[in-house]
């Protein structure tokens, strides 16, 4: 069963002559453990799709299901709880709180969800250790490199029992080496059962996904088949 499902989702901003159709009739389902990339140019509706999937914004038409529950039937409090407990977000500009250390940033969603500060920090520390950032736990965001900041934001996104990871251009501000390590972390989270959606204009980033969907002018226009394995490179005659 899909963990995230979008059914006939459309999003319109404004009215009359200023009406803008950001999304048109989007259908998408993401199974637990799957990594899906949504690829498209700037202004194609990628980020809108992600904010609607993550319940940060409502669809104008259609329905979004997260963990089998319809978002349109949830109260604001229930949506906030869902976001705190089940959904992790990764943004291009990291969105770490500058006044908190790395481990405090990671532990914050757990504390907001009622876990005692000490316990939350222990869980946060374990998440940082897993990402090789234990020695940076007490550093503030401005004392970390761009790659380290993004790894901290991934730790924050997957800490606890998160089941859905939504990433908006997660390596946009990073060099290719750090971009690759960010995608390895996202992939590792998926292999543990997390469902992930990454939106990007970067083909190298998208190529880490199990399936790549192409969006243009708010519509899904195409997707990769995802069926061919690497061994087909040996038979397809692709020159090295």
């Amino acid at each position: 069963m899909s963990y995230l499902e979008l059914q006939h989702v459309s999003k319109t901003y404004g009215e009359g002559s200023s009406e803008v159709h950001a999304l048109r009739d989007i259908n998408l389902s993401v199974d637990p453990g799957a990594l899906i990339a949504v690829m498209g140019p700037s202004g194609s509706g990628k980020s809108t799709l992600l904010t609607i999937a993550g319940s940060l914004e409502d669809a104008s038409v259609g329905e979004v299901y997260v963990g089998g529950a319809a978002l349109s039937r949830m109260s604001r409090d229930a949506k906030a709880r869902l976001r705190r407990r089940s959904i992790g977000y990764v943004f291009q500009d990291f969105n770490l709180l500058p006044g908190l250390t790395a481990v405090e940033n990671v532990a914050l969603p757990l504390e907001l969800d009622g876990l005692a500060a000490r316990k939350a920090q222990l869980v946060g520390m374990a998440a940082l250790e897993e990402l090789g950032l234990a020695d940076r736990a007490s550093h503030y965001p401005d004392q970390l490199s761009g790659g380290e900041r993004q790894r901290v934001s991934i730790a924050r996104a997957v800490v606890g029992e998160r089941k859905l990871l939504l990433a908006d251009e997660p390596s946009g501000a990073l060099d290719s080496v750090n971009g690759e390590s960010v995608m390895r972390l996202v992939l590792a989270a998926c292999r543990r059962g997390v469902a992930a959606v990454v939106v990007t204009h970067d083909a190298q980033l998208a190529s880490w996904a199990d399936r790549v969907l192409f969006i243009r002018d708010g519509q899904m226009v195409d997707q990769t088949s995802g069926s061919a394995g690497a061994e087909s490179l040996l038979t397809s005659g692709t020159p090295l």
Partner: peptide, 22 residues
């Protein structure tokens, strides 16, 4: 253009798959 783009991204997925296990 889109057909060509999809084909290239599918090839990239296959190449990336080769380096998954570092």
């Amino acid at each position: 253009i889109q057909t060509h783009r999809r084909y290239l991204v599918e090839l990239m997925q296959q190449w990336t798959h080769l380096k998954e296990d570092e």
